[in-house]
Design a protein around this nucleic acid. Structure first.
Lengths: 404, 404
DNA sequence: ATTTATTCGTTCTGTTACCGAACTAAATAT
DNA sequence: ATATTTAGTTCGGTAACAGAACGAATAAAT
């Protein structure tokens, strides 16, 4: 890998890597046809990639007239990437190879003292996962950390993260970079979940997707044109502030958001308590609704109606091809079918609403997708605009089976 | 302009054109510094561009030590583009040179019989404007047509356009292409207005903008990452269907949209009639409000409150850097200050809301911007991904002064 | 007035990337 | 055994680009 190759070699190298990653195992002659580059150029480029360890031969073509061809694929063990899901109660780390296959995973309770000790824990977990002797792997090149807050790109701090302590004064990416000596990217976890669902669903850049997470709060991650939509002040997807549900003018709605006041955990518990005088957990309320409890059903109807309006609002503004429901509450079947029913009532066309396919692993998958994307672009395109590489995802069931 | 130059020459040529278009008049030595390309390469490329007629010399540098340099700029008369605003009552055509300066403009009443006769009228107007002997100009290369409906990219037809007749069975772009022998692009007029405001405001790709048009209807054009956001079914920006204002479940709201039922022309007239028993035109209602008529003020308050909620919804989903109000109703000052007041009440952060700077010419400006963008990309980048060229806009006051 | 410094622009030479044409190599079809 | 097909390599040539050097044209210093 030269220090700074010419534009033309960067573009053609990217095209070759894209063809091998997408269609591998594949012969050089086929790559030549796919990319439009000459056979001799392909042989030159693939030869370089092979001697550098990025691709490997895996056999020969069979079943056709003419000479057998040597076929190449991306060498999975050429490098590894890490994805971290930093939550209020747990930290998950997944280590993946160059093709997105999960090599190792690790879960620990979150260090509650927060701050530097929390950062130390993350660094230690990533290092331990990468160095696991039970799992020989390529060199770790990059890690993506998902956080339940808003990363401040100027300072590196994580803001508005009530679930984790002490990261609002620490440059998380910078510190981890020093500790681990690799590239670090920090991103909001709902945004990563949106990317994860988009990637694992093989969606193209034209298939915009919105991931709506409903749990202790409500928020959305938005993928437009294949990339995250963040907004002017990082507030894209803050649908808790849509002006309906509770009164948007009320003081409380300026703090928490009108919609969030009527759709998240506390709202469900409060709504049920108002109807029954009893205080129950959200799972108990869902259970009661399944058992025919009228108040519980009413509660879920009210919540679903507001989420349906949020969905209609998202569609009226964005018209995405899919809305994915996730979060501890959002993807529950009892809620999903109510949301669909109410959405059909308040929007004149059908809104495609599906539950998350990745469940609690969506953010990890999103982290893997952008880690691989950044790594490929860094290695083969060398940052060249117009030479971006789309890394195909691993099989969904294989990915999920690798998670505890 | 060779038929198919190499990638490297396309990228460097685009970089050179971008530098000259952005900073011209400029010397070759300065272009070399800006682009990082060697002086000899710059001389080669600029020499080609000059002999092909795309750039011209306009004098020499002055006021510095060392040799005088020859300075180059884009040759304005090298080509022209046309922008058409096809409305229900009027058709406007603007002819612009390669730098966006308006050379000629033409307005005619819309041919009410619609269909092929309407298409003929457009073709005739474009041809007449381009061939005006009072205005010698470069060869017309491309035209953009803004329509008050939804262009169907598969069939070329214009759908959902109640104001203009007979275009739902005609391939508008295809027919105009045959008639005029140039490239034709068709786009929704509100979308073009959004692009026009974005372009003339020198906004960068990171400055997302939403243009909200309120007139006989309400709708939005959305510019994200410097390009139009259309959505999966072309319904992005259909904010008339936001689920508040009127009851979104009502049958009428499925046809017209809950928000549109309470914010557009008919709604204002109907609201005022309900309060007073009198039927007045919208201008008369605005006049009455200015004269202290309580019912008129109440009417405007109600409308503004709903538009403010729409603005809050847009911000909760997209977080754009600016919302531009346009349309015959949307940009009125009486309404604007009310919208801002109500927006501040129902959204916890400040929403940047400004009136349209281009007024009724926004769609024409948007058409010019994408015509120039497409032309530059076609001529100099030859469609090469990564080599896109941002054409700087002409001065706003000059542009507007050129319009009748 | 002359010399020195600065900046612009051209010429010369060499490298990289790429490809058409031709040819060799390895398989199936006739 | 020969012809056809497909993969892969070799040879020679072009396009694009840049380092180095140098001539050209100016202002500033002597």
């Amino acid at each position: 890998m030269a220090t700074q190759t010419k534009i033309s070699r960067r573009m053609s190298q990217s095209a070759v890597v894209q063809a091998i990653a997408t269609y591998g195992p594949i012969s050089r002659a086929s790559v030549s046809k796919l990319t439009g580059l000459s056979k001799q150029t392909i042989s030159e480029i693939v030869g370089n990639l092979e001697s550098d360890g990025w691709v490997r031969t895996v056999g020969q073509t069979e079943g056709h007239v003419g000479r057998r061809a040597v076929v190449y694929e991306i060498a999975p063990d050429a490098a590894t990437v890490a994805s971290v899901d930093l939550g209020g109660t747990k930290i998950r780390v997944a280590l993946c190879d160059l093709t997105g296959r999960v090599l190792a995973e690790r879960v620990e309770p979150t260090e509650q003292s927060g701050g530097r000790q929390l950062v130390d824990q993350v660094a230690r977990m990533v290092r331990a996962t990468a160095d696991d002797p039970q799992c020989p792997s390529g060199e770790l090149k990059i890690a993506v950390v998902g956080v339940p807050g808003v990363p401040d790109s100027r300072t590196g701090a994580v803001l508005m993260a009530p679930n984790i302590a002490g990261l609002d004064q620490i440059d998380l990416a910078g510190t981890l970079n020093e500790r681990l000596g690799i590239d670090i990217l920090v991103e909001n976890d709902v945004n990563l979940a949106a990317l994860g669902e988009h990637w694992m669903d093989h969606r193209s850049d034209q298939d915009d997707l919105v991931f709506v997470s409903v749990g202790t709060g409500i928020g959305a991650g938005i993928v437009v044109g294949g990339i995250l939509l963040r907004g002017a002040s990082g507030a894209a997807g803050e649908i808790g502030f849509l002006p309906f549900g509770a009164d948007p003018i009320a003081k409380e709605s300026h703090k928490i958001g009108a919609l969030e006041r009527v759709t998240a955990t506390d709202a469900i518990i409060g709504e049920y308590r108002m109807l029954t005088g009893k205080t129950c957990s959200v799972p108990a309320i869902f259970e009661a609704a399944n058992n025919g409890d009228k108040a519980a059903e009413q509660t879920l109807d009210n919540v679903a109606c507001q989420i349906a309006r949020a969905s209609a609002s998202i569609v009226a503004v964005l018209d995405p091809s899919l809305i994915v429901m996730g979060g501890s509450i959002g993807a529950r079947d009892e809620l999903m079918h109510r949301i669909r029913r109410f959405a059909a009532q308040c929007y004149p066309r059908e809104i495609e609403i599906q539950p998350s396919k990745l469940g609690p692993h969506a953010a990890l998958a999103g982290g893997v997708s952008i880690a691989l994307s950044h790594l490929h672009i860094s290695l083969f395109a060398e940052g060249q605009k117009g030479a971006e590489i789309n890394v195909p995802p691993p099989a969904l069931d294989t990915f999920k089976a690798s998670m505890s």
